[in-house]
């Protein structure tokens, strides 16, 4: 009988509903976790796989990255034979970010470390053609952009 009475009292007084309300009220008072993204830039860790970045100056046109890419979105054009003997920099280098899945498989085999991910993550464009990056657009201006966004300081702070 006391059990039944106890159950009746519990049914009428809603203790568990009240504790649920207490949980939501607790978070009502706490600071919120929303990130104000376009206003506040996120701090990304060092290993973030963002847009690909190629140092054309150090690349030796070995095409290892091209072979490793599962999506076949890299195309390396080595320079003509005569030039290659002295200057190994590629004649043209395409990466289609339209297909890239940011898996990082192209970064692993590169013998010179010329290709790597940057922390640029805002890759939306109005035009698909803008996603095809070439020799001119792949390397340096990204770095400058990072400087501007103050992201490079994060690199220093967060590097392992």
């Amino acid at each position: 009988m006391p059990g039944a009475l106890n159950r009746l009292v519990r049914m009428m007084t809603f203790p568990e509903l009240a504790s649920g309300l207490a949980v939501t009220f607790k978070w009502f008072r706490k600071p919120k976790v929303t990130e104000f993204y376009p206003d506040a830039r996120p701090v990304l860790p060092y290993r973030t796989k963002g847009r690909l970045h190629v140092e054309i100056e150090t690349c030796i046109s070995c095409r290892m990255c091209e072979k490793a890419c599962p999506e076949d979105c890299i195309k390396v054009y080595p320079p003509p034979k005569e030039v290659f003997k002295t200057d190994k920099r590629p004649a043209q280098f395409y990466i289609s970010l339209e297909h890239c899945i940011h898996c990082g498989m192209c970064v692993d085999p590169c013998p010179t470390g010329s290709i790597h991910h940057s922390m640029e993550f805002e890759l939306a464009t109005y035009n698909k053609d803008e996603l095809l990056f070439n020799k001119e657009t792949l390397p340096y201006d990204l770095l400058i952009k990072h400087f501007r966004q103050g992201l490079l300081e994060n690199v220093e702070q967060k590097s392992p």
Binding site: W27, F28, K32, V33, T34
Partner: peptide
């Protein structure tokens, strides 16, 4: 607004 506050967002 309030729902957001209860759900730990703004």
């Amino acid at each position: 607004r309030l729902l957001g506050f209860f759900q730990s967002r703004v």
